[in-house]
Write a protein that binds this DNA or RNA. Sequence first.
RNA 1: GCGCUUGUAGCUCAGUAGGAUAGAGCACCAGAUUCCUAAUCUGGGGGCCGCAGGUUCGAUUCCUGCCAAGCGCGCCA
Length: 549
Amino acid sequence: MLHNLKKSLFEILIKIDKNVSINFEDVEVETLFDKKGDFTTNAALKFSKIFGKNPNQLADIILKSINLNNFEKVEIAGPGFINFFLKDESFNTQLFNNKKEFTEKEKVNIEFVSANPTGPLHLAHGRGAVVGDILSNLFEYFGHPVTREYYVNNTGNQINEFLSSILYSISHTYNLNLNEKQFYKGDYINDIAKNCYEKFKPLFDNKLSSDEKNNIVNYAIENLVNQTLQTLVTAGIKFDQISYETTIMGKGHLPLILEKFKQKDLTYEGQLNAPKDFTGTLKDNQLTIFKSTLFEDDEDRALTKNDGTPTYFANDIAYHEDKFQRGFNKLINIWGADHLGYLKRLSSAITSLHPKIDFSVVFCQIVNLKRDNKIQKLSKREGNIFELKNLIDEIGIDNFRYFMSYRKNDTHMDLDIDLIKRENKENPIYYIQYSYARTQSILNKVNKVVDTPVTITSELKNLYKKLLEWDNVVKSAYLKKEVHLIAHYLESLSSYFHTLWSSSKNKPSVKFLDNENNISYNIIKLLHNYQNVLDEGLKILGIKPKLKM
RNA sequence: GCGCUUGUAGCUCAGUAGGAUAGAGCACCAGAUUCCUAAUCUGGGGGCCGCAGGUUCGAUUCCUGCCAAGCGCGCCA
């Protein structure tokens, strides 16, 4: 219906003046839920300038060309809006969703979570995990083959510190004299240390070689990554591809990349300002530096370190090159807000290698945990990290997924544990599930489907219209990569359903079932349509509908 | 200091590729249940859309400046 209306408006507009060109996508038709009408368009306002007419004049011209078949009336209102009032009988016949046309077939790679393999997942990872998974579902809804990818940074100082911390724990627990420093603390380190000790017990009789240390830390990382993936599985999140930084490095992309940069004159050998706390001398070593200031970055960025090894940035470029070589041209990364400053250098490096690549980043802002109406201060340093696993156990998968996705991803958000645990309207997911259970209870009672006329009330009209918006909502969420739009729509849709349901208290004639539990053909079609939209929406959110509550 | 993100009702937040009287939930007040699930519904009060300029028929939305909060600003990852 919305599409047809848009189409007929477009056809009218292009006939008015052949010298004026208009984009079909620029014609807007919106749904109204008040006395002003059922649908509206701002076309006359929007296009008045290019037609050189005033808005009311243009609206008048459009109005005269409109086919009135389905409409009770069409009127010009306010500064030049055209409002459409649908005939009652058209609600049952015209207001159903268009079949989706899946034209998207492009492979998409969505990389998310990618937590450092030195500790368990905590709250902040949860948002990225849910947003990434839902975004993947959304891309699949539109037909894309999606690869959900997880990257493990298993090189660098953090790994040495991780190993050192494990050996420190072993040394402490088993009274060995390993002479190691403690960097990471917590029960999880002691648990992993215990596992490592049991696995590699004989090795500790002698001094550990660097190969042996390597085996120990690799085992520890594998352990931790598996735990992490297991936690995510309890939240319904499964990855198709786990990529290890060391594996990617072994493929040898980096030298070729550096050569290409050199040919494009995007690098130079030189020095940057001394890093924080640096006490040595810089002058002897030249670094390879990427000219990211050419791409509006604040500073040029080092690709190699003082000791000649590649920086994290360099390896990350190689990693994205690897994704490209695996056949992905559309790359989406989900990052925490602490990586905002990293975007320019990486995207400029990638697009300078592959100008046509479609690389984008979805940022997830900080999540605060609220309990007893107080923001909980969480910090690694204080050792009071709230593990993600505990959160999921406490609130359940449905709540976890819904609440992590119902706020716009780039705004700060408070996760109110007490509110989430309430099972009423304050908790939208219960509200949505309850509406589904109500429709199912009707369907369970149906005796016969009969062809009786339906009383068209304003509550019924509103539900029809709201259902019609689904196609636009899901498409908009997809185009903008904003998953919260789905959650908000479902909540709002449920509200229209509950309102319709309750309206029968005062008007028994609008009950879904008659006295013999018969249901009219149009109503059962409506209920199925309602369930269908909730099914699709909840599936994207990764939440199972409840048939009974 | 620089960059990014944010600032909308008492609270938590939607809405902005410029459009009509800025929305929802909570909280507060008043109501609805012999009747398909009251985990629900109906009504009410409550807003210089951070501040000040600019662009135009029209700005919460775009531009500039300022104020406030968060994050980032290594040859860490």
